[in-house]
Structure formats: C-alpha cells, structure tokens
C-alpha cells in the first residue's frame, strides 16, 4: 500500500511543479513589471530611475529567471503568496476566508447531486427503454445542456423577483443571522449547482448499472432466489458504484468550476467570486494564488479518487 501511494504522491508533486512553472511563466508574460506598476509613468520624476533600480534589486527582479522562480516557489510553499494589488491584503488570508463558503456550497451540492443521480440512474437502468428511462434521460440531458448560470438567472427571476420567496444574493442577510435565513440563501445556488452536476452523474450511474445487470453474478443471485429488488440493492448497486465513486472524485475540480459560475450569479462570497473579481481587476497575485490553490485541489482529488477506488473495491489491493 505504502509504495503505491508514495509513487502517486510523487507523481502529483511533479505535476504540481510543472504547473507552477507554467503559472510562473504566465506571470512573467503579464504586461508591465510589478515595480513599474507601483510607479505610473505620469508620476515619474528625476529620481525615478534610481528608485526603480533599487526596488528591482530589493524584489530580486534583476536575478536570473530560475532564481526568481525558486524564490517565488519557496515563498509560495511557506504560504507567502504576496499581497493583493487591489486591497493590499495578504493573498493567503484572502483565499483562506473564501475557502469555507465554497467548500460548504460544493460539498452540499455534490451530496445532493448524488442523492439525485444515484436513484435516478438506477431507475433508468432498471427500466431501460421504458418511460422512466426516457424521463430520466430527458432530465439528465437537460441538466447537462443548460448553462448553469442561465438556470441561476432564471431562478432569481422566478423565485426572487416574481415570487419573492428566496433571496438572490449572498450567504445571509447582513445583521440578521438565523438558520432559516442562511438556508434560504443556500437553497437556490445549492439546488442549481447540484442539478447541473447530477446530469453527468446520472448518466454514469445508468450505464454502470446496465453493465452490471448483465454480469454473471446477477444470474447466480437470481438462482439463489434473491428478489429483483434484492439483486439490485444487495449485489448490483455496490459493483456499479465503484466506477462512479472514482468519477465523482475526479469531477471535484469541475464542481468547483461550476461553483465559480454559480457564486458569481448569486454573489456567494467564495473562491469563485474572488477569482472573477481578481480577474476583472487584473489582481495578479490573487489570480496566481487561486491558480496554485486550484492545482493542489485537482491533484488532491485525483489522489482521493485513487484511494477511494482501492478502498471500495476489494479486488484492488494497494500493494
């Protein structure tokens, strides 16, 4: 078990290093260098040249590129991601306070997506070719094909503006904290994000269950006298969910990307909203911090997928 995991972790670290080189390179491509940006041309006077040179030396910008890279990487590893050009606050602090709301939204919607997708996919598979199957595939295809932000806007139009039932922005009404209030804020982003994800999951569950229904052990179970329901719940489901679990873990980055969009629509104070705001303000340090954070998330979810797979499938041993 150990050796396998160590190898996977090493590969992930290698990928992370490559990604960080990519990000650093992009950063270098950015128009203007940080010092020049500190000092707009119209403010320059006689002493400016000397100041710029001194500042460059102080920031290490006159070092060779690879030295700069390692300095930057060293800082990043120790949690020093620089300061926001916009607010002047530390990027790690900024990211840190946004992680919570995003994880909260993502985690719950992932859960809800599965709660929708597993029964729906199962039903579609068991009733393959019949009405329930078509209905399920219409629903899941609709979820896959409709842009989630459009659903979000539609939701705001109907439930916030026309019916006045649900708030359209934020995690809570300022100064008015209550469980009901935060639930009502959560409801729309949660359901829409979950629904968008559930389409893909439903299709996976369906095809996985259909494949398993043809397996030989199903007939063995029937020959024992297991009922149709028992065959599905006690034998097929677990086998069918093994590949699905991996796919769900692998799609974590996609759920996060979906959250970026939904957070923007509902002004949800998470990572996504921060990322879009920093893109709009060309707040490079924050963008880069977000990119690094996201890359780590991606590699972690790949590792989780591997781990889960080995945990749920007795045939795969980690040796």
């Amino acid at each position: 078990m150990g050796a396998y995991l160590v190898r996977r972790v090493l590969v992930s670290v290698l990928v992370l290093v490559l990604v960080s080189i990519g990000i650093f390179w992009l950063f270098r491509l950015a128009p203007g260098d940080p010092v020049e940006m500190m000092l707009p041309p119209q403010n320059r006077g006689p002493g400016s040249e000397a100041f710029i040179a001194a500042k460059r030396a102080e920031l290490g910008l006159d070092e060779p590129v690879w030295v700069q890279y390692f300095t930057w990487l060293g800082n990043a590893v120790t949690g020093d991601l620089g300061y926001s050009l916009d607010t002047g606050r530390s990027v790690s602090d900024l990211l840190g306070e946004r992680v919570g709301p995003t994880v909260y939204l993502m985690g719950l919607s992932l859960l809800l997506a599965l709660v929708i997708a597993v029964p729906l996919g199962l039903l579609a598979a068991v009733r393959k070719g019949r009405f329930a199957d078509y209905a399920a595939s219409v629903v899941s295809l609709g979820a896959v094909c409709t842009p989630p932000f459009f659903l979000g806007i539609l939701g705001i139009y109907v439930f916030s503006l026309k019916l006045g039932l649900l708030p359209s922005a934020g995690m809570s009404t300022p100064g008015q904290y209550s469980v009901g209030d935060s639930l009502s804020h959560l409801l729309m982003p949660l359901v829409i994000l979950a629904f968008s994800q559930s389409g893909q999951f439903t299709r996976y569950v369906r095809s996985s269950v259909i494949a398993e229904l043809h397996a030989d052990y199903v007939r063995t179970a029937e020959a024992k006298g297991v009922s149709a329901t028992g065959v599905v719940t006690r034998h097929v489901l677990r086998n069918a969910l093994i590949p699905v679990i991996t796919i769900v873990a692998l799609s974590l980055p996609n759920v996060l990307a979906g959250a970026v969009v939904i957070e923007t629509v509902f002004a949800w104070p998470g990572m996504g909203q921060l990322a879009i705001a920093s893109f709009q303000g060309r707040d490079y340090p924050v963008i880069i911090g977000f990119a690094l954070f996201f890359s780590i998330m991606v590699l972690l979810s790949n590792l989780i997928a591997d781990l889960l797979y080995t945990l749920v499938d007795p045939r795969v041993s980690l040796r």
Partner: peptide, 18 residues
Amino acid sequence: VFLSFPVLVVMIVIAGIL
C-alpha cells in the same frame, strides 16, 4: 492531468494575466 483542469479555471488565470 489536462482533463482534470476545467477550462473555466484555466481561462481565469490566462485571461486574468494575458
């Protein structure tokens, strides 16, 4: 690796910088 990076996030970084 490529598949696990959503285009949306990649574009935030690329468009944010370039």
